[in-house]
């Protein structure tokens, strides 16, 4: 379980201190998908960095299974907004870097990587370079890289943000399918309301900077969440509610 307790984050900038996050508390249960939804620039990404110990928060604390995180912990897979694939490595080698850095058995890593590649529908592309792939495929590779060491937790920072709407939809469906098999914990940052609802067990809605928790909404929709779910009354309800929250915060308005 990952707990954020009164977490705050201040940045030092040229013009003094900027408050990025303020007084944030919520928790992520094991095996649950939590989406963090907020407008651009509200410090959503900072969250994942704090949650993995890559950045230290300036106030409050973050507990992982009851213990404070003081340095980057390793039982995590990170998917960044830009895929961050190494252009001198092929698809397979890019996934293998995880094993090389972690000193894992490379033969075993290779097998796992190949089966992941197959799972995300990239068979036949193992030996291609990242620049030979489309944006969606690149992000799939980066997801494979984040999964190959079988981490308990997956941190995803707007992973589908740079993709077109159709690819995005497919990626969401595939991610859910994978999660149903593995049941790992996923913290997923997005600014897309529909994506946030469809993926989540719990949506954390943040306010504009400084980011604060506006509301935590438990999503009770059957999985897998297919087209019918999207047209259900419950889904519409969640969407309406969140849209109203954003209108309330002045981020969305009719005129």
């Amino acid at each position: 379980m990952l707990e954020f307790i009164n977490v705050g984050m201040n940045y030092k900038t040229l013009s003094g201190y900027t408050e990025a996050l303020k007084d944030i508390s919520f928790c992520v249960q094991d095996g649950e998908i939590v989406t963090i939804l907020g407008p651009s620039g509200c410090g959503k990404s900072t969250f994942l960095f704090i949650g993995t110990g890559l950045t230290q928060c300036t106030s409050g604390e973050v507990l992982l299974n009851g213990e404070a995180i003081i340095e980057p912990y390793k039982e995590v897979g990170f998917v960044f907004q830009d895929h961050l694939l190494l252009e001198w490595r092929t698809v397979l080698e890019n996934i293998m870097i995880q094993g090389e850095f972690r000193n894992m058995d490379l033969e075993l890593t290779r097998e796992k990587a190949l089966s992941l590649i197959k799972q995300v529908g990239l068979s036949g592309f193992e030996n291609k370079y990242p620049w030979e792939l489309s944006g969606g495929m690149q992000q799939r590779v980066s997801i494979c890289r984040a999964l190959v060491h079988e981490p308990d937790m997956l941190m995803m920072d707007e992973p589908f943000g740079a993709l077109d709407a159709l690819t995005r939809e497919q990626m969401r469906v595939d991610l859910e399918k994978m999660w149903i098999q593995k049941r790992n914990t996923i913290v997923f940052v997005t600014h897309d309301i529909v994506e946030a609802i469809l993926l989540a067990d719990k949506v954390v809605v943040l306010t504009p900077r400084p980011g604060r928790v506006k509301e935590v909404i438990n999503i009770d929709l059957p999985r897998p969440r297919n087209m019918t779910v999207k047209e259900s009354k419950e889904f519409m309800g969640y969407r309406k509610h969140i849209t109203e929250l954003f209108m309330d915060m002045g981020i969305l308005h009719d005129e």
Binding site: P72, G77, F78, F80, D82, L84, F101
Partner: peptide, 15 residues
């Protein structure tokens, strides 16, 4: 170097 690559490396190993 993209600074995020450094963050990525830190999630894997401190070396």
């Amino acid at each position: 170097l993209n600074p995020r690559l450094y963050s990525m490396a830190r999630t894997m190993n401190d070396s």
